[in-house]
Design a protein around this nucleic acid. Structure first.
Lengths: 239, 239
DNA sequence: GTCTATACTCCGATAGAC
DNA sequence: GTCTATCGGAGTATAGAC
């Protein structure tokens, strides 16, 4: 359907060029990170001109976002579907914590095992932008996670009625931190924690360890605030 | 004591120059991250020549490491001291989880409140390199954390005798992830999790929420491995 | 609309004068 | 120890070929 190179025309199908850039960029970004990846490396490996990135995506950072968006959007759609189906089955009763966590983790897990969805490359990419400093790199995340965040937060609030809004927010934050840090799984793992006992490439195994930890953390008793400026203080030791 | 600029000499005390570079670099690295910070910005703000960084530190990345090392080493020494004093008091009985976590977190907390130790700038810097990709940036961490890691891991193993070596390793990893993600506290917080209910600058408050979460996660029951290649399988639903 | 060639600015690094 | 000059390589923008 597209004007192709049969008969001497050297143009390529535009979709093909864009896709090839995305594929190559995804791989190199995952391996070397954003800053250490040069546009010249991407374009030469994808066999396109240096300016092709600017033409098709606008800039390097916009290419990064496109790489991200291509994988995250289907993943988050799947997360919402899974939560929805859990809620239909449960009716009005709160969901079990592990079901919520499982529904959240499984789409990421599946993507990590399917090369068509980015495979391990994408998983490495997934957790990285959270720690990046510049607003350019991670300011585009909130709209992509907005719906997911809202729905899972609501499900967690129902499952954990004893937590204040504030404490729930923090715990969700900690959960995301543990996940992002683990999934991003750069070599940081072997570095901080000598990993004679754990295999960072066994993603399914990781989740089996991650789930009880997150469940235990989320369902821990609420914090006892000590330095609060309230005068109705919670007694410390009067059992 | 040093040859200074009184009387027309334009030389400065070397220590003073190095310190000024470190101070300025720490602030800018914390604000904008490694990649987005240029040596020209640092040197102009510190009122030194561009080549001064290369002269005193060797390269940009070595300056980054020096900034880091200056703060982390005293902090980790303090961590070891606090754990040591806990262990002396406890004798042979295992330490309480919250005491271990507290001993680990408090030195970081204190540094975050003391401008002389880097203050909030350093805390932002602390968690960041874990997610950075290039080996240049985070390969220098392991030797700095080696001793701390070994001692805290041993204390945790004693406090959590039911966990396998492998699971303990993973849980320590998750704890570090939640901490690093939280302390790094870029704006990622407001982005992933709408933070109407939590104040990311209130570091003392954060720790009060972090502690019960980590304690709950660490002391959760061991994972039930499902896909293991054992034939003595644990029954799923036979209550 | 797509792709190419080229130029511009900024970066980190370094050699050599002072 | 400090400064200037300069180099190669990075991201970016654009004029023009097809």
């Amino acid at each position: 359907m597209v004007a192709n190179d049969i008969g001497g025309c050297h143009l390529k199908a535009p979709a093909e060029t864009k896709e090839r850039i995305l594929d190559v960029a995804e791989q190199i970004f995952a391996e070397k990170g954003y800053a250490a990846t040069s546009m010249r490396t991407i374009t030469s490996q994808a066999k396109v001109n240096l300016a092709a990135i600017n033409y098709h995506f606008g800039s390097k950072v916009q290419l990064y976002r496109a790489v991200f968006r291509r994988r995250v959007e289907p993943m988050n759609r799947s997360r919402i579907e899974m939560l929805h189906s859990l809620e239909r089955k449960a009716g009005d009763t709160p969901l079990a914590l592990e079901d919520i966590l499982q529904a959240f983790l499984e789409p990421a897990l599946r993507a990590s095992l399917d090369p068509k969805q980015g495979g391990t490359n994408f998983i490495k990419l997934l957790g990285r932008p959270h720690a990046e400093p510049g607003p350019d790199i991670h300011d585009f995340l909130p709209p992509m996670y907005d719906e997911v965040k809202k729905r899972y937060r609501a499900a967690l609030a129902k499952a954990l009625p004893d937590l204040s809004q504030e404490e729930l927010s923090w715990r969700v934050h900690f959960v995301i931190g543990a996940m992002a840090f683990t999934l991003a799984g750069t070599d940081a793992l072997e570095m901080i924690e000598s990993c004679r006992y754990c295999d960072p490439t066994d993603i399914q195994g990781i989740v089996q360890y991650l789930l009880p930890f997150l469940k235990g953390g989320l369902s821990a008793p609420p914090a006892v605030l000590k330095s609060a400026d309230r005068n109705t203080r919670i007694p410390d030791k009067s059992s």
